[in-house]
Amino acid sequence: MSKSTFYTSVGYKILMALSGLFLMFFLAQHLTINLLSVISAEAFNDASHFMGTNPLVQFLLQPVLIFAVVFHFVMGFILELKNRKARSTDYAYKNPSTSSSWMSRNMIISGITILAFLALHFLDFWIPEINTKYIVGDMSGLMPDGSFRYFQELQHEFQSLPRVIAYVVAFGFLSLHLLHGFKSSFQSIGLTNGKKRATLHKFGNIFAILVPLGFVFIALFHFLTQSH
């Protein structure tokens, strides 16, 4: 590919879409594993341990994921700034809802909410995890009592009501983000066309509602099934 290709608006769009698609794929995967925690602690532990120690996941997928997240939101900010600069005098009277959805116009807001969530989420899970594995150097995934720690840790996080609320709100915004993001990413890489468009939109809406709903379910499940 030529050097300057992706330094164009369409190039950015395509990269944005690819990172978004990857994140959606991750999200589906993440939901699946986390749903295991609802079904069986053991299965969840096994899967988490596998994911947490498999070198392919840890040293390939994880960096790609981190890169994708960072790339996606950095790019999101850059595009938003550029786009704002494209109209320095704004209209006196605006009436945007007649022609586009709130979600599509406010990706930056839903995005920032997700980003805030991710910060919290990393503090909750990822940083302790990395700390245990790579700083402390304990790759066993075991607690002192010999059982896997993952399920315990997970449950532990969902003890606090404020956190659960924060999570659920964030998942709401995630849904809004995806309600536009899903179809948008297919449009960006040129796969929406004619009749396919309607089908994709339907599927996208289902995805954008069900996936966050799944996460809400997990959070509530763990909150409600624990004694406080």
Binding site: K82, N83, R87, P96, H180
Partner: peptide, 16 residues
């Protein structure tokens, strides 16, 4: 791009 138009984020207002 050179002319200073913004980037499309597929909001679809244009089509409407």
């Amino acid at each position: 791009d050179e002319e200073g138009f913004g980037n499309c984020t597929n909001t679809g207002a244009c089509e409407v």
